[in-house]
Simulated assay, not measured.
Amino acid sequence: MAKTNLKGMTVEELQDFIVSLGEPPYRARQIFRWIYKGVTDFEKMTDLPRTLVEKLKELSYIDKIGIYKKFQSRKDATVKYLFLLSDNNIIESVKMEHSYGVSVCVSSQVGCAMGCAFCASTIDGLKRSLNSGEMVDQILVIQEDIKKRISHVVIMGSGEPLLNYDELIKFLNIINSPLAFNISYRRITVSTCGIVPEIRRLADEGLPITLSVSLHAPEDDLRDKLVPVNRRYPILELLDACKYYIIKTNRRITFEYALISDVNDSKECAVKLARLLKGLLCHVNLIPLNPVRERDFMRSKPENIRLFQEILRHYGISVTVRQEMGADIEAACGQLRRSIMNEVKR
C-alpha cells in the first residue's frame, strides 16, 4: 500500500485523513503546524501521542524538495534557486528583497505549454504540473535557507498557474493559513497568459489576491504571434473576463507588457494599449525584455521605454517600469533550468 504524502494537504484534507485513522480531528491542526515549521520526522512532533506517530510512520510521509543549486546576484539581494524534485525534474524559484519585505517567485509547473514567443520557460514544452506541496516547498525551503520570513508571493515562475487550478487554490489556502505562513491574500499575485474560463472561476473564489495578466500586445494580430493562447481567447474576450474579475473582487488588475524592440514598443502600440485599457481599474507593468539565447528578440531602447510610459500616463493609465533584478544570474523564468537539466540527467 502506497504511503500518503501529507505535505500539500489543506487542513480540511488532513483532518479527513486523521479521522480515517480513528484519531480526533484536532490532531490535524497540530500536524499541519509541524509540517509548515519544516518538520518532516513524525518523531519530532512532540505533542502527538506515540500511537498516532506509529500510524503516521506506517501510512504516510512528508515530502521535501531539495536545493540543487543557488545563484546569488552580485548586483542586488536576488537569489535564484534550482530545486530538484523526487522525479529528477528541476524547477526554478527566485527570492527578491524589497523595502517592503521579502518576496518569492514560485513555479507552478515543470516547463510550460503556452508557447509565448519570447519566453525561455516554454522552449521544451510542459513536463508536468506541480502538486501543491511542491509549490509550498519552494517558499518553505527558501525561508529556511535565508532565515527570514517570506512576506510576498508571486506565482510567476515557470508554467501557467491557471492550468494547474486545483493545486493552485490549495497552495493559496495553505500559505494564507495562520497555521502555516499567514501570508495575506493581498500580498499574493497570480500571473496568467489569459485563460478566460479560469479567470472567471478565480473571480468566483472570492480571494482578494492580485491578478496579473500577461498582455504584451494591444491588438489580436500581434498578440496571436507573441502569446499563442490569444488565438483561443482573443483580447476583447480576455478583457471581459478581467472586468468580471474586477467587479467580483474589487481588485485592480495588473497587465504585464514586455517591451520588445521593433515589435510592440512603437508609439502606435502605446496609444492602442492606452485606448484599450482606458477606464479599466488596472495598472500596466512595463518589462524591459530579458533576452533569451534561443530567441531573436531584443529589449527596447531606454528612450523607447520612457516614451511608451509617457504616452500611457498621458492617457491616464497607471504605469511603472519593472525594476530589473538578478539579470546577472538569469533570474528570468526558464533561462537557467534548461542549461542545468543535462547536468542532472548525467
Score class of each variant (00 low, 15 high):
12 E>R: 13
16 D>F: 07
18 I>W: 03
18 I>P: 05
19 V>S: 01
29 R>W: 06
29 R>T: 14
31 I>H: 09
35 I>R: 08
36 Y>M: 09
49 P>Q: 09
61 Y>R: 02
66 G>C: 09
72 Q>C: 09
73 S>G: 06
73 S>C: 08
74 R>Q: 13
76 D>P: 03
83 F>G: 05
83 F>P: 01
86 S>Y: 13
88 N>K: 15
95 K>G: 00
95 K>Q: 12
96 M>N: 10
96 M>T: 08
101 G>F: 08
101 G>K: 07
103 S>P: 01
115 G>L: 06
117 A>Q: 02
118 F>P: 11
123 I>P: 06
127 K>S: 14
135 M>T: 04
146 I>H: 04
154 V>F: 01
155 I>D: 00
157 G>W: 04
157 G>I: 06
173 N>T: 10
174 I>G: 00
177 S>Y: 02
179 L>E: 14
179 L>R: 12
181 F>A: 10
192 T>G: 01
195 I>N: 08
208 P>Y: 00
217 A>N: 04
222 L>C: 06
229 V>A: 10
230 N>P: 04
252 R>A: 12
257 Y>Q: 00
274 A>I: 07
279 G>D: 07
284 V>C: 02
289 L>W: 05
289 L>T: 05
292 V>A: 08
297 F>V: 11
306 R>F: 08
308 F>V: 09
309 Q>N: 12
309 Q>C: 13
312 L>I: 03
313 R>H: 11
315 Y>Q: 08
317 I>S: 00
319 V>T: 15
320 T>Y: 04
324 E>Q: 14
325 M>P: 04
328 D>M: 04
330 E>Q: 14
341 M>D: 12
345 K>I: 13
